[in-house]
Design a protein around this nucleic acid. Structure first.
Length: 488
RNA sequence: CGGGGAGUAGUUCAGAUGGCUAGAACGCUGCUUUUGGGAAGCAGAGGUCGCAGGUUCAAGUCCUGUCUCCCCGACCA
C-alpha cells in the first residue's frame, strides 16, 4: 500500500528534515538526552568525509594524533575568553566510582569524589596546548601541524540530529607557527581546504569570510567561516578556521628560542568541521522523495533493480545484472544489486530513492530482450533507455553530470536568495517577509549586532569584502561589506 | 530557563461524561497468489496503558506527586 510522501518542504521544514533522516535510515535520537545514534547509512557519509577531507588535510602536511577526552578543570581555566565561551555547556566528571546501596540500586559513591573535576572535552585547545608547551623549545620545532578525529561534548539546551547534538564527531586541526603571518596564512589555507571539500565533494555552495567580533571563537584573534544556505534560506555554519594569535601561547606558555636566541611566543591556529556537514548535505539537496546524494558522497553510486516474473526470467535477468555490475565496477563505480525477492520493484524504487542513491538501473525481461536497460537519475528523476554496451560509459558521464548539476542547482538557489540592501528599513522589511542572505555595508560592533538581531532575527554571517558604502545600521560611511542571514 | 504539547503494541496514534476480554494502521512471522512505481488474502506473534501513591464496587480514563520526551524561543558547530 502506498504511504504518504515525506512531508513537503515549506509546511514544516524541520519535520521534513527529520523525515528525510528517518526514511533514509541515517540516524535516530538516542535514549541519552541530546545525543544521536548514527546508523550505518549515516556513518557511511561520515566515512566519505573522513576519507576525502582527511586526505586533503594530510596533503597539506598535517598528521593525525589523539588526545584524551578528559580535560582537568584547571587547564580549561587558563584562557579567559575560552573558559567563558564553554563554561555554560560543559559536561563535568565529579566521581569515579559507583556502588550498590542497601536496596541493590546503583548510586554514586560519595567517597569517590575527584579532587579535581575533569571536563569532557568541548574542544581540545587546552589539553593539546598543555602538551605543545613541552613539545616546542626551538624555532626548529615549528611549525607543529596536527589533526585529530574525535568526539566532542557540548551540553546544548536544544538539539537536532546532525545539526546540534550534545555529543558529535568532528575533526579538529591545531597548529603552532613562528610568526603571526604564518599562522594567518595557515588559517586561510585550511578555510580553503574546507571550501574545496564541501563544494567539490558535497556539492554544497558556500560563502566564506571572517566572522564578526561577536561571532568569533572564544579565545581567537580572528575566526573564518564557511556558510551554506539551506532550502529554507537559513544559514548554516559548516566549518570554521581560527587564527588564535598568541592568546593561547601566552596562557599556556608555549615559547621557543628563535635564531637570535630570543624567547618568543608561538602563533597558533585551530580549525574544525563536524557531523554537522551531514546535516548541511541533507538540507541542501534533499527533496520531497527523500535524500539526494551527490555521487562523490554516496557509498553506493548505482543500484540495479532486477525485475522478473518466472524463475526462467529471473535467471536471465540476474545474469545480465551481474555482467552490468562488473562492467560498472571496472569503471570505478560502486554498485549494489537489489536481489530481495520478497519485495516488488515499485517498493525497491522508492526504497532506494529515499536513501538518495544517485542512479538506478532497472533490468527486466523486456530489457534483456532488447539489450537495453532503463537508467534513472535521482536528482532529476529523468529516465532513459540505454543499450547494455553503452551503460558503463553512459553512467560514468552521468556521475559527473549529477555531481555538477547538483552543485549548480544549489548555487543558483543561493544566488537567487542573496540580495543587496542599503538601508535598515528595507533590511527589516526583508527579514519580516522573507529569508535569505543579505549583503550590506556595516561598521561592526557588538552592540549594533545585538540590536540588528533583536529587530530582525538575522545575524552577521561573515565579512565578504571591502568597498565604500553606508553602514546598514548607523547610515555612516562604512568600508566593510558583510553577509547577514538567519542562522541555524 | 520561559511558552506550548505528549507519554497506551516495534512505530504512528485512537480510546468522550470512569464500566464487559484495551483497539486501529503500518511494521513483524508463516502460507498462498503476486511482481515494469510503495501488492493482496488468510493465519499468527506482540501490552505492567511512563512511574509512585490515592479516590472508587470498578481507573488507560478522576486526584496528588514524580520522571521523561517533543515543538517554539534564549544559547551554540
Amino acid at each position: 500500500m502506498k504511504k504518504e510522501r515525506i512531508t513537503p518542504r515549506g509546511e514544516n521544514y524541520s519535520q521534513w528534515y527529520l523525515d528525510v533522516i528517518r526514511e533514509a535510515d541515517l540516524a535516530e535520537n538516542s535514549i541519552v538526552r541530546g545525543c544521536m545514534v548514527i546508523k550505518p547509512n549515516g556513518y557511511a557519509l561520515w566515512e566519505k568525509i573522513q576519507e576525502n577531507l582527511g586526505r586533503m588535510i594530510k596533503e597539506t602536511g598535517h598528521r593525525n594524533v589523539y588526545f584524551p577526552i578528559f580535560i582537568p578543570k584547571s587547564l580549561l581555566n587558563k584562557e579567559a575568553e575560552h573558559v567563558e565561551g564553554f563554561a555554560k555547556e560543559s559536561a563535568v566528571v565529579t566521581h569515579h566510582r559507583l556502588k550498590l546501596n542497601s536496596r541493590k540500586e546503583l548510586m554514586v559513591d560519595p567517597a569517590s569524589r575527584l579532587e579535581e573535576e575533569v571536563i569532557v572535552r568541548p574542544t581540545s585547545e587546552t589539553i593539546m596546548y598543555d602538551s605543545f608547551a613541552r613539545w616546542v623549545t626551538s624555532y626548529r620545532d615549528l611549525p607543529i601541524l596536527i589533526n585529530q578525529w574525535s568526539n566532542i561534548v557540548r551540553w546544548e539546551m536544544r538539539t537536532r540530529l546532525f545539526l546540534r547534538t550534545s555529543e558529535f564527531l568532528w575533526q579538529e586541526g591545531h597548529t603552532a607557527h613562528a610568526t603571526h603571518d604564518e599562522a594567518e596564512e595557515e588559517a586561510l589555507k585550511m578555510l580553503k581546504v574546507y571550501k574545496d571539500f564541501v563544494e567539490e565533494y558535497m556539492a554544497v555552495p558556500l560563502i566564506s569570510g571572517e566572522k564578526s567580533e561577536g561571532e568569533k571563537f572564544p579565545g581567537a584573534l580572528r575566526t573564518y567561516t564557511i556558510e551554506a544556505m539551506m532550502q529554507d534560506c537559513k544559514a548554516l555554519q559548516a566549518g570554521t578556521s581560527h587564527n588564535l594569535g598568541d592568546n593561547f601561547a601566552k596562557a599556556f606558555d608555549i615559547t621557543y628560542l628563535d635564531k637570535n636566541n630570543e624567547k618568543k611566543y608561538v602563533w597558533q591556529t585551530s580549525w574544525g568541521a563536524s557531523t554537522r556537514l551531514i546535516g548541511a548535505l541533507i538540507m541542501t539537496h534533499s527533496d520531497d522523495r527523500g535524500l539526494v546524494l551527490p555521487p562523490k558522497m554516496s557509498e553506493t553510486q548505482v543500484v540495479i533493480i532486477p525485475i522478473w516474473k518466472t524463475q526462467e526470467e529471473r535467471k536471465s535477468v540476474e545474469k545480465v545484472c551481474s555482467k552490468i555490475e562488473s562492467d560498472l565496477q571496472k569503471e570505478g563505480i560502486s554498485t549494489s544489486t537489489d536481489y530481495r525477492d520478497y519485495l516488488t520493484p515499485g517498493f525497491k524504487f522508492n526504497d532506494w530513492e529515499k536513501k538518495g542513491i544517485p542512479v538506478r538501473i532497472e533490468i527486466g525481461p523486456k530489457d534483456v530482450e532488447k539489450k537495453k536497460a532503463v537508467v534513472c537519475r535521482r536528482d532529476t528523476n529523468e529516465k532513459k533507455s540505454v543499450e547494455f554496451k553503452n551503460i558503463p560509459k553512459n553512467v560514468k558521464n552521468l556521475m559527473e553530470d549529477i555531481q555538477s548539476d547538483m552543485f549548480k542547482k544549489a548555487k543558483n538557489f543561493l544566488n537567487d536568495n542573496t540580495h543587496e540592501i542599503e538601508n535598515f528599513e528595507d533590511f527589516k522589511d526583508f527579514f519580516k517577509n522573507k529569508r535569505g542572505f543579505v549583503k550590506a555595508f556595516w561598521n561592526q560592533s557588538k552592540e549594533s549586532e545585538g540590536e540588528i538581531k533583536y529587530a530582525t532575527g538575522a545575524s552577521s554571517r561573515c565579512l565578504i569584502g571591502e568597498g565604500n558604502g553606508k553602514c546598514i545600521f548607523t547610515g555612516k560611511p562604512a568600508k566593510q561589506k558583510w553577509v547577514f542571514g538567519i542562522g541555524y
